[in-house]
Amino acid sequence: MTLTRRAREWVIVAVLIALPVLFLRANLKSPSDINWLDRAVLRISSPIEAALTWIGRGLGHVWSRYIYLVHLERDNEALRDENARLRSELVAAHQQAERGGELERLLKLRSTLPSGVLAAHVVGAETSAFFRVVRVRLDRGEGEAKPGMPVVSSAGVVGRVQRVYGPYSDVLLAADAKSAIDVVLPRTGGRGVIKGIAGDNRYRTRIEYLLRKDEIAEGDTVVTSGLGAFPRDLVVGKVVKVTKRDFGLYQEAEVEPSVDFAKLTEVLIVQ
């Protein structure tokens, strides 16, 4: 760089230093005055700045909305969980109430039964479609069950103890084809034997050995006769279908068990 050129450079630099000093002096005297250049620059800058701020605010709103939604979703999830928990508690309370009612009914039944009873609760159901058996466990402090003992619930006849192993017992349900319980129709006095209907997924029973001359109609209640191990007048079910024949000694009727075997929880074993 030549001396002249260097000198020119420094002169320009000096001017560039002096210029703002002059501007500053002028501006300090009257700070509110702006010239056309200032106005032009600000007219260009301000809309850009405003647009950027507007975009930023928009993004901020979107972001805060997103955060809000995240919180909302979290709250929603918490409320959903709480709702599910409360629902399950409600179901449990209902079950408890039902169980309480069932136990109350069982106690009433117990007081009506002539002999002693053992309380038990169902711990397992049948694992084969061909056998209607439930597994029960005697409640703590109860005596000992024996095969053949009648099993009842508050709704009616359940079945008979088939096997006993410790506190556990297998109960052959009245709906099993091998089961046979002597019953009576209180309305007419007709007698018969309740047996399970095999080959059906539902728990169905029928009265056999009911004399053809005995009157029977749909809706008739069927109770135990008192013959055999079962105490008398325990409800077995209701007649739902009658099959009359023109020949033979007996007639048959399908009986819907009063006990819902699928929902069986508490039972009494009659000693």
Partner: peptide, 14 residues
């Protein structure tokens, strides 16, 4: 005030 940063920036640059 116009000129303030103009001046200081030139000084800093140099």
């Amino acid at each position: 005030p116009r000129g303030l940063h103009a001046l200081s920036f030139v000084i800093v640059m140099l």
